[in-house]
Simulated assay, not measured.
Amino acid sequence: MHIPRTVTTAAAAAAPRFAMYYDQWHTASPSKDAMAGITHVITAFASTTLFTSDPPGTYTPFTDVSTLRSQFPDGTKVCMAIGGWGDSAGFSVGQKDDTSRKLYAKNIASTLDSLGYDCIDVDWEYPGGNGEDYKQNPNSGKTDEIANYALLLQEIKSAIGDKELSIAVPGLERDMIAFTSEQVPKISAAVDVVNVMSYDLMNRRDNTTNHHTSVKGSLATVDKYISLGMDAAKMNLGFAFYAKYFTAQGECTQPIGCPTVSLEDASGGDTGKSGAVTFQEVPPVLASGKADTDQGGQWFWDSATSYFWTWDTPDFVAQKFEKIVKARGLGGVMAWSLGEDDASRTYIKALQTGLKTL
């Protein structure tokens, strides 16, 4: 049956999402004109432990909601992120049983209302284990989180009503402990938006080099979630406004598979042999980067420091729109984080350009 061009589905008519994290460590004031297309700005982070008590603790954002709202285009939703890397203690308490989940959700809802937020982003890294404390608090003690994660999200969504619930989810398959074929459909049904952290695909737990973000790596992450039952239209593809470096052992002539020194100690701590540098800081070494056209990532081995560098470029950003966002029917994109882009807003502009192609 022929359908007139003027008739579109709600999904087709909806503008693509463009979510931007705005973190408390990089607070350069955005120019409203430069923020065109941003649909969600997400302040990071509220502590997870604030919501476990009755009454809840008090969250004081680093910037108030009304001020932040005035810095973005009309209609941009202002969201509160809870958690982040290294903060999951409150989630672990909140997810335990029906009573704790209801209290946690009620406290989130009241905090959103009192501060004027439009939405909540649950940044639990990572339910089921593999968080920062995985050596001290092993995954074997967190198996209850696998089933309870979706239950907690259901309670939060029920408590906040019409306000949006988004989640940040891991990019590495080894970290998708709670994202099983049984649980993912429940997780997907409970939330409105899924912010896929399709970066940090190499971290200090690795002992050979790889791109921390790439076209092929990001596509593999997205395809894994889709295969598990995640609704593609709810997913935002993630972009990182920073480069990462890892100390290699000896010369590194290719981006994949060079051995590294020990990047993590026996207790899971950082040995100081790896790190991240924001595009705001523009490390000079980035000018020497090489494009891995097979994987779709930028890299460089610095012989002076033995650092293996890995990052994204505007060209690979464009490829991700074509080969992932469009090809897989994703609902939009997100980036970490606003204040980490360079002075010319190179990466915000690259995302804005990509969004115009959708």
Rank of each mutant, 00 (worst) to 15 (best):
T313I: 07
D33G: 14
A189R: 02
I160Y: 02
G238E: 00
T260W: 00
V277R: 07
S303E: 11
G296V: 06
T357L: 05
D192C: 08
P73I: 06
F72M: 04
K77A: 15
S110E: 05
A343L: 09
V333E: 03
Q183K: 13
K96W: 15
S31L: 15
A276E: 10
Q249G: 13
D175V: 09
I38K: 03
V78W: 04
T221K: 01
P55Q: 08
F18L: 04
V78K: 00
T52N: 08
I38T: 07
F308T: 04
W311R: 02
P255G: 04
S214C: 03
T43L: 11
I108L: 08
G75Q: 08
G332C: 03
R69I: 05
V333T: 04
I256S: 03
E125T: 00
P284F: 04
V282E: 15
I3L: 13
P259K: 07
M197I: 08
D97K: 03
T39H: 01
Q295C: 13
E281G: 10
K102A: 14
T208K: 09
S29N: 13
F45M: 00
E264Q: 15
L50A: 08
L115Y: 07
K273G: 13
G171V: 06
K234V: 05
V193P: 01
Q24K: 14
V122W: 00
S198M: 07
N203Q: 05
Q295V: 11
T253R: 15
A13P: 14
T48C: 05
K326R: 07
S88A: 12
I177D: 00
A19Q: 05
P4Y: 04
N195A: 06
M1K: 13
L201Q: 05
Q183L: 09
M176Q: 14
P255N: 06
A233E: 12
D54W: 11
T260F: 01
T43Y: 02
T8C: 13
T60M: 12
D270F: 09
G250S: 05
D98K: 12
N107C: 09
W124M: 07
T278W: 01
K186W: 09
A147W: 15
V277N: 01
R205A: 15
Y149H: 10
S344F: 10
D144F: 15
W85D: 09
I324D: 02
A12V: 13
A178F: 02
F279I: 00
L68N: 00
K216H: 09
